[in-house]
Amino acid sequence: MSEEAVAENTKEMKKVFDRPESLNDQQFSYCPGCHHGVINRLIAEAIDELGIQDTTVGTAPVGCSVFLYKWFDIDVIQPAHGRVSAVATGAKRARPDLTVFAYQGDGDFASIGTNNSTHAANRGENITTFFINNTLYGMTGGEMAPTTLIGQKTTTTPQGRTAKDYGYPIKMSEMLAELDGPTYITRQAVYDPKRIDKARTAIKKAFRFQMEDEGYSLIEFLSACPINWGMDPVEANERIKKEVEEVYPLGDIIERS
């Protein structure tokens, strides 16, 4: 191709992929193959598309979500571990005009914060909750979470989780769907383009419910933690499909509006 032709073609080229406005110009520090980055990006895209960057407040605690305030170009509150649903409740009640989301891991949402998570859902708080279920504690070194699968080896269940000692993987989304408070509860994954597309739709739907004053939404993400699972990213994606989905099936659990 002649130089003129290249120049002519480039002029025609449109930028089709860029960093969302709601993310800062920074590189994520998540581990290779981790799904947090994909989920963060999808949330940021949804915020951009809904035009709510200026009126959104995120709440994210410790662990792998500790730097959320660095990644997102929105106002962020960092609560104590487990308290995210209660802190989001406080912010939303004080300023109902804001769009408030809670970003919580499985230890946060389903273990130390179960009381706060459950009651926020039961009150039908008008917030949007993202619950990242990677079946263990990531940042602290791969300990068992309440979502750890039976037989799964973690640093605190070196022989694998047994039901005798620790019971069964907790099904928060199904539990909360039993309540009359929540509006929308769904379980999503982001391991392939089809799933990413569905997750994107779910995130936007959840934010819209809040913007329309419809109440509490919960999106549980089955998320990969290749480092603590001792797998490469592709194996980790396969594990979600073959093992994690067996216990935690994907799809909408309730939708009431």
């Binding site: 609560p79 308290r83 209660a86 989001a88 409740t89 004080a94 706060n116 459950t118």
Partner: peptide, 27 residues
């Protein structure tokens, strides 16, 4: 837009205070 909310626990109440105080309102 005054908020009175009976929290699920003392821990819930102080965490709600944290969230509301973050918005700058008297809490």
């Amino acid at each position: 837009n005054g908020t009175f909310l009976q929290a699920e626990s003392e821990i819930g109440a102080i965490s709600m205070v944290y969230g509301a105080a973050s918005t700058g309102e008297r809490t």
